[in-house]
C-alpha cells in the first residue's frame, strides 16, 4: 500500500497495529493521532482518513483536532528543525526580524518545510534563555543573540 509519502511498509504495519488496538473507539482519537505522528513524523492525509475510518470519527472532526493542537502537523518535517523563540524577551529583541529573514532566504513560513526537505520552521515559546535572546534552535543546538545577518552562516553549517 502506498501513502504517497516516503514511508515504507514497516511504518504502515505499525499503523495497522495501532488502529487495530483502538478500532471503534472515538475517545482514543488524540492518543492515536499522537502515536501515528510518532510513526510517520507527521500526519499525512491518508493516515488521517484511516484513523477516521478505524475510530469511527468523521474526517472533518479528526482534522479539527489536528488543526487545533499545534503539536500536530500535516506537513512532513525537514531534515533539520529550526525553532525561533517568540517568547516576550526574544520577541522584543527582534525575533520578528529573524522570521522575516528566514522567509526571505528560505521562503519558509512557520509550519512549513523547504522544497529540498532540508529545513522546517516552527515558532516556539520561551526556552528559558531570555538573557540570551533572541534565541533560535536548530535541531538540538541553541544559538544565542542571533542577529539577522548571522542567520545564513548558522544555517549553512547544517546544509550538506
Amino acid at each position: 500500500m502506498s501513502f504517497g509519502c516516503k514511508c515504507g511498509g514497516e511504518l504502515n504495519s505499525k499503523l495497522d497495529a495501532l488502529l487495530e488496538q483502538y478500532r471503534g473507539q472515538p475517545s482514543a482519537l488524540i492518543q492515536v493521532l499522537h502515536q501515528a505522528q510518532g510513526i510517520y513524523g507527521y500526519l499525512p492525509k491518508k493516515v488521517l482518513q484511516r484513523v477516521a475510518e478505524a475510530l469511527n470519527v468523521p474526517l472533518s472532526q479528526v482534522y479539527g483536532v489536528v488543526s487545533f493542537y499545534s503539536f500536530f502537523t500535516i506537513h512532513p518535517k525537514g531534515k533539520h528543525q529550526i525553532g525561533v523563540c517568540k517568547g516576550t524577551a526574544c520577541y522584543v529583541r527582534g525575533a520578528g526580524q529573524l522570521l522575516d529573514r528566514i522567509k526571505e532566504e528560505l521562503g519558509l513560513k512557520p509550519g512549513e518545510t523547504t522544497e529540498d526537505g532540508q529545513f522546517s520552521l516552527e515558532v516556539v515559546r520561551c526556552l528559558g534563555a531570555c538573557g540570551l535572546g533572541p534565541v533560535i534552535t536548530v535541531d538540538e543546538d541553541v544559538h544565542a543573540r542571533v542577529q539577522p545577518e548571522r542567520l545564513s552562516g548558522i544555517l549553512a553549517a547544517y546544509r550538506q
Binding site: K45, P58, S60, G64, S67, F68
Partner: peptide, 20 residues
C-alpha cells in the same frame, strides 16, 4: 450524521469548514 463540516483551526483563525 454526515459531518461534512466541523470547526477547524483555532483562535482567530477558527473556521467552520470541511477537513483540510
Amino acid at each position: 450524521g454526515v459531518s461534512a463540516i466541523a470547526v477547524q483551526e483555532r483562535g482567530f483563525d477558527t473556521v467552520v469548514a470541511p477537513a483540510f
